[in-house]
Design a protein around this nucleic acid. Structure first.
Lengths: 230, 230
DNA sequence: TCGACAAAAAGTGTATGCAATTTTTGTGTC
DNA sequence: GACACAAAAATTGCATACACTTTTTGTCGA
């Protein structure tokens, strides 16, 4: 994910690993995360696992039930709407600010991201695709030089990955990417009105593409973790 | 603080206690928070203290230095500007949304807050005053029924309390309150343009009232904690 | 008197142990 | 066969123990 610094601490490694597993849909909502099993998997004691689970619960990627354990979060429809509402507030304002403070260097950096995104769309790596689609939004904030904003957006987008998993009807990935292209072009052209409108429509589309009445299956733990990540 | 549910868990008690101490300026930036001392103070083991410190570090109220310990955060000028920038994005959009979805019940609830704020301005309780001034902003978000937004705003405002402590020139508390009254009146009147403008000006004023070149003294730990909180 | 170095103290990072709670398993009854 | 209940197993919550790092203290020599 964008803005993931070097994970020096052991706890951070566990957090990142679990975050990827959740965001990339290898760990499904409702899955129980037993401390000892995770500890065995990562070769550490429960202490570090508990720290990681605690952090993830603050990011709302998992929920901790007292004396019962940790479970991958199952965001409600209401929460989903709230998350999207906040994203709209932040991202529309961010696009405005980006146009106002646009420089060739920033455009270049964003162009570089677009190329990576474009390439990923052609490939088979679904995880990478999901990651880059999210990063597009974070990157714009980062280019504004506002790390506070970038971090908040990053967390909201992680939550959206969970929401998408729970409620998304069909794979709208390609569609999202096309909309990113449109936003990018408007940013390059310095066309604030279009950029704002396209971003608004993009977020509306993503939210509208959700189907708020579904059940999701649960999942096995060790299988999900022995996947293509660390 | 607004949105502080019943602090059932022991960790939450510690987090809230330390948060209040930091936000109410009883613990000054840079102060070291030794785990054992905190554990003794709260009558628990270091385990719980570590969890609390960990959470506070995510809220950016303290910073954890590997193998060196926890210190009350000393936000940089740059960070301060970023926090205010995000607040502007969120709060202006929130005011807009509030006007659009205003109801008599919401107005009543906000009016109730204004009365509490007004009363606190007359009293001597500085902590209460600070708390209510921050709550004004969170309350508007809560009344919109967006808990996600309210929580993010709450965290940003806590960080602002730290920033204010570090950089605020004089006590602008009364001035802030007067501006709140103005925003409130515009909200009651359903005057979106004025409400947005006043909120923008209010945040600009708070930020402009900061003086970005000062040192702050450090502080004693046990004294700060044996203050009027739990 | 000051600085460098070494020993001691204090403090953090992680693992382990134990009480308490929850979940599972097993048994008997209807 | 389904349900209720009790014993056993598994799991969580918290405290404690210990290795390792940082900070402080104390001593010596210039």
């Amino acid at each position: 994910m964008a803005g993931m610094d070097t994970p020096a601490s052991t706890t951070e490694v566990i957090v990142e690993s679990l975050t990827r597993a959740v965001v990339e849909h290898r760990l499904l909502p409702g899955t129980k995360l037993a401390e000892q099993k995770l500890a065995d998997h990562f070769g550490v004691s429960r202490t570090l696992v508990r720290q990681a689970l605690f952090q993830l619960s603050q990011n709302r990627l998992i929920r901790l039930e007292p004396a019962r354990g940790a479970f991958v979060a199952t965001p409600s429809v209401d929460e989903a709407r709230q998350v999207f509402a906040v994203r709209r507030m932040l991202e529309i304002a961010t696009v405005r600010a980006f146009v106002a403070a646009s420089t060739p260097a920033k455009i270049r950096a964003l162009k570089k991201h677009m190329e990576a995104e474009r390439k990923a769309m052609l490939g088979q790596n679904v995880s990478l695709r999901t990651e880059l689609l999210g990063d597009f939004h974070v990157r714009i904030a980062q280019l504004m030089g506002n790390e506070v904003l970038a971090q908040i957006l990053g967390e909201l987008i992680s939550r959206c990955a969970l929401i998408t998993l729970m409620y998304q009807t069909s794979t709208a990935a390609v569609h999202s990417h096309e909309e990113h292209e449109g936003i990018f072009n408007a940013l390059v052209a310095g066309d604030e009105a279009s950029a704002v409108r396209l971003m608004q429509e993009h977020l509306d589309n993503v939210e509208a593409g959700l189907m708020f009445d579904r059940d999701v299956p649960s999942n096995d733990l060790s299988m999900a973790l022995t996947a293509p990540n660390a």
